[in-house]
Amino acid sequence: MFRNFHLKDIIFLAIIGIIFGVIYLATGFIYNGLTVLLTPFGYGPMANDITIGIWCMAGPLAGFILRLPGAPFLSEFLSATVETLLGDQWGASNILSGLVQGIGSELGFTITFYKLYNWLTLVLTSTMMTATTFTWDWFRNGYSHFTPSMLTTMLIVRWFSMFLFTGVLVKLIINLLNRAHVIQRISK
């Protein structure tokens, strides 16, 4: 699967990971601010669901740019690993989160057999990533202990966050890259 990747692609994916890492670190205050704001209402962990899409953008974006099986997974996994090495809030568990997010975003592309690159793909990646990350948080962040009504709200919020960032925002970036004829040149 990863045999098709050349040194240039790997460096590219890792740099994408770092760029997103830099921007994630800058958005950390949003996560922390939201957490502090929501905690008095008993919805502190929901900051995680509101912002999750921001952390998952690298995968779908790389999938659209490189159009190789494995690219979404690799990009998401590398960006999480890079974040761990840069020292972020989640420590070693971030590598595991990257694995889970990577599998989610890869699945979205696998369902379309890596043939479709449109809105449907983005909806699928958002949905698959919501499913895998929510399952992971079920264990890691103690979601299994929350009430069903809270969980339902969080699941819906998470999907919308995923769709907004890994769907809409990624699509806007892709459109810009398309207009600059960057994508055709790389995925040739």
Partner: peptide, 21 residues
């Protein structure tokens, strides 16, 4: 390193302890 987990940790803690469950 000791301050990093404080905000998400305390948030989950308060939610689990005082609200959900």
């Amino acid at each position: 390193a000791l301050c990093l987990p404080l905000i998400p940790g305390v948030a989950v803690m308060i939610t689990l302890g005082a609200y959900s469950g």
